[in-house]
């Protein structure tokens, strides 16, 4: 464990807590893409298949349970909670995410470390996570004004993978045989997708103005 990875995991945890706070405090999920939440639930379920077979550390197991549990709880809330579901921007959240699922799965069948069920699903989850934010970014652009908590949620979600890139650089420099090209390349793509959001987020923060994404 290094400081970059710890910072990344904590930032990821904060993004989940911000989203849970928004949904429970405001009983609203306006500005949040259910499709992105469902993609993230798939990412965690397919990535943590080793949850019950390989024990790495208490921290690792607890965090996996937190991410799987929170993502499923958020999807459940946005679909079935009688108050929250009413504020879901159904007509704006129309990203055809089957394409993301299909492309990621085909890519995982072609590019993986070992051709085993666990490794193929792991690679699938890495590729899927890189593009899972797209429905959310599209929804933010369509909904124009971004409420603070939704903006902070996306900001922390983007920042966590940027910390992981620092972690991979650090591990590459300190551990002679560390190579994780799948994660690294996918993580770079993932963070790049946030680039324009970060830019507009910084502008709005600098001008102390509401976050406005260009349509």
């Amino acid at each position: 464990m290094n400081i970059f990875r710890l910072a990344g995991d904590m930032t990821h945890l904060i993004s989940v807590l911000v989203l849970l706070l928004k949904i429970y405090a405001t009983k609203s999920c306006s500005g949040i893409s259910l499709k992105t939440q469902e993609l993230y639930a798939i990412v965690f379920v397919t990535r943590y298949l080793d949850l019950f077979t390989d024990f790495i550390s208490l921290y690792n197991t607890v965090m996996k349970l937190v991410f799987i549990g929170s993502s499923l709880a958020i999807v459940w809330c946005m679909r079935y909670h009688r108050v929250v579901r009413r504020s879901y921007d159904r007509e704006l959240d129309t990203f055809r995410y089957w394409i993301l699922l299909g492309v990621s799965f085909i890519l995982a069948l072609v590019l993986h470390e070992k051709f085993t069920l666990q490794e193929v699903f792991w690679a699938f989850s890495i590729y899927l996570e890189a593009v899972a934010i797209l429905p959310q970014l599209v929804l933010l652009q369509r909904s124009g004004n971004v409420d603070n908590l939704a903006g902070q949620y996306v900001f922390f979600l983007g920042a966590y993978r940027a910390f992981y890139i620092l972690n991979w650089i650090y591990r590459y420099l300190t551990e002679q045989r560390f190579t994780r090209w799948i994660s690294c390349v996918s993580g770079l793509v993932q963070t790049a997708l946030y680039a324009d959001f970060f830019y507009y987020y910084f502008i709005s923060w600098k001008n102390n103005a509401k976050l406005q994404l260009p349509a």
Binding site: D50, I56, N60, Y164, N167, E175, T179
Partner: peptide, 10 residues
Amino acid sequence: AKVDSAKDEL
């Protein structure tokens, strides 16, 4: 199963 060090990440 031996978890190679790279798989210890979340």
